[in-house]
Computed example of a mutant assay.
Amino acid sequence: MAEQETNEMSFLEHLEELRWHIVRSFIAIAVVGVAAFLYKDILFDTIIFGPSNPDFFTNRLLCRAADLYNLPALCINQSKISFQNILMSGQFTTHIKVSFIAGLVAAFPYVFWEFWRFIKPALLQEEQKHSRGAIFFASILFSVGILFAYYIICPLSIQFLSNYQVSDKVDNILNLGSYISTISSIVLAGGVIFELPILIYFLARVGIVTSTSLKKYRKHSIIASLLLAAIITPPDVISQILVCVPLIILYEAGIIIAKRIEKKRAKAELEVYK
């Protein structure tokens, strides 16, 4: 049914088509999630708790830099962090939740492909031609965002939040659910944020945004980037800058993308009038 022309399908047929794309996406997420559930040690000890361990790649790299440049503050997450679970079913439900998130992250290229198959028939042939590689680039950007958040933002967030104290009389004993929620939100936010150029590409293709309008609101985008960085990161300047800078770069990349689309459109219109 995905190959049918949009104008030949009724509204209910579109809903039925969408339903099956969603069902297949959930099946893919479930399959990967079950695999992640079975490999509990790798999922938790290596991946989830990795950024909190002293031997984590980023932590080791920063400690080497601290020794090299005599800056002890750079050496982070060197103390063992204790986690606690206060709910009877807390660890089991956390295991299921994390497995689902892992399935979503790993199956993202397939999920995006499913929704792309649903949207693609509604595009004109010329639009489909210019949209080639959308799945590849969306998957690459999502993966880069995930890795950036995991290897850069997460260790810094853990260092700041686990050591912050309102008083010496209060010890930090981290709740397992709170830790998982923090790591998950940071990583997923990183993946979504890095999709900004893809979003701008499609908005520019349909004429909703232009390079001129993006330039006009450049200052507003910087403020929005700062606010978004403040929301998804701990309240320390370094983490906020590390998130804000890529956002600004991605926005500038979006301007370049929009400008290229406008040039191609102008060229195509010129050829039509010749």
Rank of each mutant, 00 (worst) to 15 (best):
S162E: 06
N163Q: 14
N163S: 15
Q165Y: 12
D168V: 03
K169H: 13
V170L: 15
V170Q: 11
D171N: 11
N172F: 14
N172M: 14
N172E: 15
I173R: 09
I173P: 09
L174Y: 08
L176D: 10
S178Y: 09
Y179Q: 05
Y179P: 05
S181L: 12
S181V: 08
S184I: 07
S184R: 00
S184L: 04
S185L: 07
S185P: 05
S185E: 11
S185M: 09
L188N: 09
L188V: 10
G190L: 03
G190Q: 08
G191M: 01
V192S: 08
F194K: 01
F194S: 01
F194T: 02
E195A: 09
L196H: 08
L196P: 05
P197V: 06
P197W: 05
I198V: 14
L199R: 08
L199P: 06
I200N: 04
L203R: 00
L203A: 08
L203N: 04
L203M: 12
G207I: 00
I208L: 15
I208A: 13
I208C: 09
T210Q: 07
T210Y: 06
T212R: 15
T212K: 13
T212N: 12
T212P: 02
L214W: 06
K216P: 03
K216R: 14
Y217C: 12
K219Y: 11
S221N: 15
S221F: 15
I222Y: 02
S225K: 06
L226H: 00
L226G: 15
L227S: 10
L228T: 14
A229R: 05
A230Q: 02
I232T: 08
I232H: 03
T233D: 02
D236H: 01
D236T: 00
I238P: 00
S239G: 02
S239D: 05
S239V: 01
S239N: 03
L242P: 07
C244D: 07
V245G: 12
L247D: 04
L247H: 09
L247Y: 07
I248K: 01
I248M: 07
I248N: 03
I249M: 12
L250T: 11
Y251G: 04
E252C: 06
E252L: 08
A253Y: 13
G254L: 09
I255D: 00
I255W: 05
A258I: 02
K259S: 03
R260P: 05
E262W: 10
E262V: 13
E262Y: 11
K263Q: 13
K263C: 11
K264A: 12
K264R: 14
A266G: 02
K267I: 06
